[in-house]
Each structure stands twice: as C-alpha cells, then as structure tokens.
Design a protein around this nucleic acid. Structure first.
Lengths: 211, 211
DNA sequence: GCAGAGGTGAGTCACTCGGCTCACCATCGG
DNA sequence: CCGATGGTGAGCCGAGTGACTCACCTCTGC
C-alpha cells in the first residue's frame, strides 16, 4: 500500500482501477446490485469492458472491492478525547450521528442490507466499520467510570447499546426509509444531548430497587 | 371484502390469486425483487404464466400486493392495556420486540429497504404498520402521565423514540444483519425491562438542570 | 528502437427476463 | 345443454445480462 516500486505501467492500471471502483460505487449505490451492469460501469468509468474483466474477475469481486473501499473512508476518525463522561459520550454520540447522517453511508447500508443474503461476510464489515468502534468507545467510557465509582452500570454492553440506539433510532431510520430525508444539525445535537442526559440520569441516579 | 355473492368461478380465481401471492412472498423474501422471476413464481404456485398475467398487470403490482398482504398479518394486535406507566411501557416494548424478532418481518424489512428507491411509497406502509402504532402507544402513555404530573417529559416524541430505539437497536439490528440470528426470549424481556427503567429514571427523576 | 505490459474496441456466446398473445380446455349457472 | 368465465400450455418478442476472446494499438523503460 505504501509508495512501492511504482512501475509506471502499473500506475495507469491503478488509475483505471480507481476509475472503475468510483463508477461502480456510484452505480451500485444508485441502482442496486442486479440493476447495475458491467457494461454501464465500463461506460461510466470511461474504460473498456476488457479492462474491467482484467482488473476484476467477476461482478461479485468488484462489488466487494467497492464496499471495502467505501468503508475505508469512514475510518479516518482519531480516538475520542479524554474527559468526563458527559463530554465523552456527547462527542462520540455526535460523531456517530454524523456518520449515520451521511447520504453515502445511508446508501451503502441500504445495499449491504439488501445483498446480505448473497454476501453474508459483509455483515462483519458492517459491524467492524459501523457500529463497533462507537460501541467500544461508549463501552470504555462507561466501564472506566463504573470502576471509578462515578456511575453504577451492571450491564455495560446493554447501556452502550441503549445509548447508541437512542441516537440511531432518531437519526438513522428516517434517513434510511425516506429518500432525501434530512435532520437538522441542531436537532441532531439536541437528540444526542438528550441521550446523554438519559443515560446519565439512569446510571448515575441512586439505585431504586423498587421500580 | 365481506362474503359477497361468491360467484363460484371467482372463487377459483381468488384461490389462484392466493397461491400466487404466497409463492411470490416466499420467493421475493428469499431471493429479492430482481432475482425473482415471474416464471418461477408461476412454477412454484402451480399456476400458468398466463393466469399470473391476468391476475396481476405487472411484476411491480404483484410485489406491491405481496408487501401489503404481508403487513396485514402484523395488525392483529388489540389496544394496549391500561395501567401504570411501567406496566404499559413493558407491554408495548415486549410486543414491539416480538414483532421485530419474527424472521418473516425481518426479511420483509430487508426487501422493503432494498427496494425503497424503486417503490418509495412503501416507506409509508413501513411506518404505518411498523413503528408507528407502537410509537403512538408509547407517546400516549408518556403524554397522559405528563399531564397527570407523574413524570415530566418536555419532548414526548423524543422520549418515545428513545424508548423504542433502546429496544430495536438491541433486538432488530443483529437479526437484520446476521442471517439466522436469534435473541433469547429471556434476554429480550430483560432488555425491555431495562429500557423501561431507563426511561422512568430519566423522566421521573427530579429535574437536574445542572447536567 | 524494441519488447512487453497494459488498454482498447468489437464481437460472440448462451442465457434469462418481463411482457404478451393465442387457441384450447374445464367447469359452473342458467 | 350451452354460454360464459376462468385456467392452461406453448410460444414469440425485444432487450439485456455476465462472461469471455482476440486482434490491434500505445506507451514505458531498458
């Protein structure tokens, strides 16, 4: 992946490959797997069909490359900042909401969900690049604070899922179901803040065994 | 829709129609829209292709009928029981989790999400038969209790979304992403109970404006 | 200046699809 | 008994599809 020997014929090949993947991404996300033909991909990328077959052995391989490289654009985040629980959760929550709000991510989720029966291994990628990093961040925060005695969280996994669920259920589902749906940045921030308040209120509150 | 004049030739037509829809449902949910051909539907339902075209003008019409009739099986619930907030929310939450856990519903959600760009009107059906009834139930409970002074919920819509999100994020996403995923009934009940506790802890707790 | 890597355009192949039509058959109701 | 309603089987059509091949062109790098 680094700046290897460059071999100036391979350079062109990589450029062509990038063009193919870009065109395939746009077409797959717009039309879905079946309705996207290799001919259209070749046409849109300005590459001959023969080149396409030399670069990718099959349509499935091209689809897989498209998903993989799309995910890689979502992994540019640096680790969450240290600080108190409220600030930490707010930061993670806002990033999570921002990820789920991107139109490109929504379309990617849609096609991955649609094609999961045919590409079951994509579920792992969906988890590892989507929910998992945020889940682990939330989990880490809650666990640390629990051990510090600030909060009392018996089921950390459940609490983290609750937190992310309160956000995704508001931000993600409408964008996934209604094409072109937009949630204002202010509303997103408000939703995240309320989610943080709810989690804190639950697990920082004195134990109420009578409920 | 009632037991009309029966016309004993139409009876056979309706039986054939039911066979067609049943076969189409199985094939659409298993293979998706594009990979399901009308020929296979006719074959599986034991009906000739000509009959299929007489009953349904197009593949899209058949798909629409399939989705509509699949949703109708989800609307057999009676109104939620009266009682205190905790019991009410628990009942609604359990029903919601049960709905989201059904394998058939998961497959239906999957294909609806996948085909939404082509059938945008399905989003309305998704809402009105899926989340909406439960959302309204939760909303009604919280609103009534708010007006009664038991709890203090400024944004009832948000609170209802939070509650359902805590459940669906645990129950629904894994079943949607991982084929064959199962969550035990005990765990589901536990998740619902914890969601109720969290909501109650947040909105029944004394106002903490300092957070 | 030439070998070879890589891209190109055109074309072939076997196949499937949704849509449609037609002549013919089975059964019920008057 | 006979007409009408509805189902049947077969076949055709135009359009795409993924996969694959081959002769040819265009550059780079030695």
């Amino acid at each position: 992946m680094s700046g290897v020997v460059t071999t100036y014929h391979q350079r062109i090949a990589q450029e062509k490959r990038a063009l193919i993947v870009a065109a395939a991404t746009a077409l797959f996300l717009e039309l879905g797997y079946d309705r996207t033909s290799l001919a259209r991909i070749a046409e849109r990328s300005g590459v001959s069909r023969a080149t396409l077959f030399k670069q990718f052995p099959s349509k499935a391989a091209l689809f897989d490359a498209m998903v993989t490289e799309s995910w890689s654009t979502a992994d540019e985040e640096d680790p969450p900042p240290a600080g108190n629980v409220v600030d930490g959760l707010s930061t993670i929550g806002r990033r999570y909401a921002e990820l789920l709000s991107r139109a490109q991510m929504t379309d990617l989720f849609r096609i991955v969900i649609a094609e999961l029966p045919r590409f079951p291994e994509l579920a792992n990628a969906q988890f590892s690049h989507g929910k998992m990093p945020y889940f682990e961040s939330v989990r880490g925060y809650l666990l640390a604070e629990h051990e510090a005695g600030t909060v009392r969280v018996e089921d950390v996994d459940l609490a983290a899922t609750q937190f992310l669920g309160m956000i995704s259920n508001y931000v993600f589902w409408p964008t996934l179901l209604v094409p072109g749906w937009q949630v204002s940045a202010e509303r997103v921030a408000q939703v995240v803040d309320e989610a943080v308040r709810t989690i804190v209120a639950r697990y920082a509150a004195p134990a109420r065994s009578d409920i």
